[in-house]
Design a binder for these strands. Structure first.
Lengths: 348, 348
DNA sequence: CGACGGTTCCAAAGCGCTTCGGATTTTGCA
DNA sequence: TGCAAAATCCGAAGCGCTTTGGAACCGTCG
């Protein structure tokens, strides 16, 4: 069933039927009702390709997900971010298309996306400290919103990000308050902007207490469980091991916990662990009694908000760049406790 | 830049340019080369909407991801499955569109997908034992491939699935060989087909040894970490606790490990754990020395194969349903060992 | 009674592409 | 050299929709 058939069936012109369906004022309420009923009865749905061809709008948003070629890793936060965004799209009648892209062909991917015209806007994931995609997309003239920031980018652009620096500053301060002085930072890949900002927060908190950072206690890698395990295992074997770990991801924190157990220590007692918690669904840190003390910022909510922001920009491309900072909650779990009064001695 | 402009610039008709670009034989090699060069130079990309309107094909695949409304949970295997599928799509020039759908509006979602005509085929995720989507989609006449099976569906359809029954039968047999007799099964949601099949395999292995299953040792829930923890904790507190756990997901297995540690026991020594491992990237079970003994079947590979199967069906809709079973590897890690000779006594 | 401003509807021109049916040119062969 | 067949190319229709520019009709007012 298409417009022409529906119009013929109703004895109306395509114009009128189209206008009735799209809520234009030039059609009487009576006919509009008649048209709507007929559309419902026949199950008519306008062909989005034809509509897109005529209007120039695609009614779809593109998400470009970077895949680090080194690890072929699909960051689990994307899943929940996208789940959030899709709620917004659904309500607004937008579709969502996914493009996975390696590091190499990124610019090309965006150019193709624009040239094909299959999407009206783009959400940029996983920005790095210096990220060429932002000036590139600005130049392309395609509406976009960045999930995160790119610290070295001067020109304005739209983004939504959690307060990574603030969260990790608070987290580190919390550990310092508990008496910890040797606090390890197990961060994400150092090229990623969020990791950079978290390190800044960590360093800031240390500096405020006059604690000198120890490079041996700072690492940045793809946030897997084995990474957390290995890093913690190695650090716990140092001559003066850390008494606390600040970790960028629950998954790595689980690895840290394993290393702590393997070393015959108790988490939250001998060694404290404070993790960031993106609050994704299947790896819940627990609602009532969280396992890990954590800085929590729901990534799903971020997805929802990013999508809303993007739709606003598409509706009105003249809008000045919009930005939004989400605060992280500090939630207290069982994984932290006061620093052991007497530094643990590593057996020789 | 569009076809007409490109044709004008070349002094050719749109017809010829279109044919040259799409590899039709009615155009000389010389002009084809000339056209291709001009297209490259001007950066011309055909408008997919216009093309789709003319051809009737959308050059896009729809993935409908079920979100269990109860847990608002996005199963992490989708991430890696989709990553695999997208490799296939990329190579074939297909786009991927995602639709998240609650349990309620599923049929509607598929109908809309068909009516809008935005996709040429669908991948169905997370089939239940009895899944109405399969007859529904068959009736719609839209090519589709199911990732998994629906055991109660009689009519033929295309699917790709791992050998859940076989894998869990082997896994249980492996534990039985080690002397375990009280083997717990921590499964996924019992309505899910994969969980059903895994239980069948488990029961089959027990039956083959004449071991009666104990309902107190069988559970099925959404596979989160806390679920694994609680279930294992409760079972370890039974009068005659299990000596081994068969777990449907690494994430839950991590919870089991936590419960074992909390109980003051050692995994792989006092209690064995054997998990299924979908081999997704960020939760690697370790390549060389796997942490958990596990049945491994890479979900990413499944995504790739499912996508290929679907594209075949789209190319030739007359094809009879195709099915494919993936075998799981049994990989040996540190989490299993012989059953303790003297059954552990739970302190009163 | 005729002109006039609203209201309601329509015809037709695109949007950018594919493809059918034909026209024109080139080639092969007697 | 002549002519059918093959090789190239083109015009135009059509995919299903939106939207511009009018046309027809209504009631109303001077």
């Amino acid at each position: 069933m298409n417009l022409r058939q529906l119009a013929a069936q109703l004895g109306l012109s395509q114009t009128t039927v189209s206008r009735a369906l799209n809520g234009y004022p030039e059609v009487s309420e009576a006919t509009r009702r008649r048209v709507n009923e007929a559309a419902l009865a026949t199950g008519y749905t306008p062909n989005p390709r034809a509509r897109g061809l005529a209007t120039g709008r695609a009614m779809a948003i593109g998400h470009v997900i970077p895949i680090s070629t080194s690890h072929e890793m699909m960051n689990p936060v994307f899943g929940d971010f996208i789940a959030g965004a899709s709620e917004t799209y659904l309500a607004a009648g937008y579709d969502m298309t996914l493009t996975l892209s390696g590091d190499a062909d990124e610019a090309d991917n965006y150019r193709r996306l624009k040239a094909k015209g299959n999407v009206d806007g783009i959400i940029v994931h996983g920005p790095r400290i210096s990220d060429g995609r932002i000036p590139f997309l600005t130049g392309l003239g395609m509406p976009f919103v960045v999930h995160g920031r790119a610290s070295q980018t001067r020109q304005p652009y739209s983004w939504i990000d959690m307060d990574n620096t603030g969260a990790f500053c608070r987290a580190a301060s919390f550990l310092l308050d508990l008496g910890h002085r040797r606090i390890a930072l197990l961060n994400g890949l150092e090229t990623m902007d969020f990791a950079h900002r978290r390190e800044l927060g960590y360093l800031k908190a240390l500096a405020a207490r006059g604690v000198a950072p120890d490079p041996a206690l700072i690492r940045g890698e793809e946030m897997t469980e084995p990474y957390g395990y290995r890093a913690a295992r190695d650090m716990l074997a140092l001559e003066t091991p850390p008494t606390a770990f600040l970790v960028s991801s629950l998954i790595s924190a689980i690895g840290v916990r394993r290393a702590i157990h393997d070393a015959g220590l108790r988490m939250g007692h001998d060694v404290s662990v404070l993790s960031h918690d993106d609050d994704f669904s299947y790896l819940s840190n627990g609602r009532d009694l969280p396992l890990f003390t954590a800085t929590r910022s729901p990534v799903r909510e971020a997805g929802r908000l990013a999508a809303e922001m993007l739709l606003r920009r598409i509706a009105d491309p003249g809008l000045p760049p919009e930005t939004r900072v989400l605060e992280a909650q500090l939630i207290i779990g069982d994984s932290t406790g006061p620093a052991p009064s007497r530094p643990r001695q590593v057996p020789a």
